[in-house]
């Protein structure tokens, strides 16, 4: 296969970026998208040019590190991660535009690499159950109905890649945040801190500069793990009921 790639190149966070066009004549349809980029990078290095930087790690669709906006869709045309996208999805001779995730809260670090530490900070605001190591009850003490456990799992399957933010026209992080809130709202282990958790996490989400949800459902359609927007509705419920019934909490991390 031969393809033409239009790739966003940006030297550093503060540098001005631009698209560069590369002709790629050695593409096999069996390559993953990232392997195609590897081969291109080898060619660039051989020419003495800097390779295109992009995030990647596990290359099996679970670590959530890869993050390319391909032809107008996060992770490209299939509902999967970029590392699991293969070149047979594209046509010979096609022009493919590759951009980084675009969001105020995800500044570009270099080329296609963005800073997603905002997600970590949201989790630090309350995405946990406050138990210390040791001194916990036996695992079978609390029975959890299978349906509830399964639904919690569906929410917990989020890999934190940020495709939801990238897909959303408002760069909203609602799907990501609601997945964590849902997991702990569903499971009894999370109930003790249920109200504080959602208040703190929403506050942190807003302060990171993500947009608001306008229910376009693009996040759900693009999420490689098919996290449902039902989680967003659940977070809305959790948030309103918390706000009208909880004690006022100090926002920020901590116990």
């Amino acid at each position: 296969m031969k393809i033409t790639l239009k790739v966003w190149r940006q030297k550093s966070k503060d540098a001005k970026g631009e698209f560069k066009t590369y002709q790629h004549d050695h593409v096999s349809s069996d390559m993953s998208f990232l392997e195609m980029m590897d081969v291109l990078n080898t060619q660039l290095i051989k020419k003495g040019e800097e390779p295109i930087h992009f995030d990647h790690d596990c290359r099996e669709g679970i670590c959530g590190m890869c993050s390319m906006y391909i032809n107008g869709q996060p992770h490209g045309p299939l509902q999967t991660t970029t590392c699991q996208l293969h070149m047979r999805t594209f046509k010979d001779g096609e022009t493919i535009t590759v951009e980084p995730w675009r969001a105020q809260a995800f500044p570009v670090i270099k080329d296609l690499v963005v800073d997603r530490s905002a997600f970590d900070r949201i989790q630090q605001a309350g995405g946990y159950v406050s138990v210390n190591t040791g001194g916990v009850p036996d695992a079978n003490v609390i029975p959890i109905p299978k349906k509830i456990a399964d639904e919690a799992f569906d929410a917990a399957a989020c890999i934190g890649c940020g495709a939801c933010v990238a897909a959303c026209k408002n760069a909203s992080a609602m799907l990501f945040v609601s997945a964590k809130v849902s997991q702990f709202a569903l499971l009894p282990q999370g109930h003790a801190e249920r109200k504080e958790r959602v208040e703190k996490m929403v506050e942190q989400m807003d302060s990171e500069g993500f947009g608001s949800c306008t229910n376009t459902r693009a996040c759900e359609a693009e999420c490689p793990k098919a996290i449902s927007v039902a989680n967003i509705a659940r977070m809305n419920r959790e948030y309103f009921s918390a706000m009208v019934s909880s004690y006022e909490v100090k926002v920020g991390g901590g116990e």
Binding site: V129, T133, D138, A139, N140, K146, A152, F153, L187, G190
Partner: peptide
């Protein structure tokens, strides 16, 4: 102890219909 710890943290292990692990 590991299983107890992980369940307390909210790790969604597979469960039977009766709600046990």
């Amino acid at each position: 102890n590991i299983i107890d710890q992980c369940v307390a943290q909210g790790v969604p292990f597979a469960r039977e219909y009766g709600g046990l692990l």
